[in-house]
Amino acid sequence: MSTELDKLNADVERQMRLLDRLPAVEPGSECVEHVRTLVANAARDARRRQEQWTVARTVSGLAAALALAVGLGNLPMVSPTVSGYEAEAELRQWTAALDETSEQVTALVELGTHVDGGEDWDYDNELDALFDTLERTLDDVESL
């Protein structure tokens, strides 16, 4: 800051003491209580949305893992010339993807249980869709 601005700043700061004479004004106590209630409710809503978003991300990850499983599972069928070694590697990948899927299902179910108490968000549709996909995946696996 230049010297001139410094001087002006100091001068204005000194004059600002005039505003200390302003009468104090306070919000009504009912208003403050109302704001506290609204803020608490908004915080709960925001947390719930955050948890729903986490579930949505889990479901997305799960879908990706399932898609990978299906894709890898089908790969030997469309690649009849694949060597035995490659087929084994793909099977290992497929198994890993299925393990991950299993962990994500567990996480999803647990998370759903945690946020379900008294809340109106419904996990039924997400879980139904998930298990439908899983059934289709298993069909694909059986046809290998």
């Binding site: 104090a24 004004v25 506290r36 803020v39």
Partner: peptide, 23 residues
């Protein structure tokens, strides 16, 4: 978004925020 923390912010700042807005 811990409700207690947000409540504390309201308690700490509501007078000053209201003062500014009122003036």
């Amino acid at each position: 978004r811990e409700p207690a923390a947000l409540d504390e912010l309201v308690c700490r700042y509501s007078r000053r925020v209201f003062g500014l807005l009122y003036r």
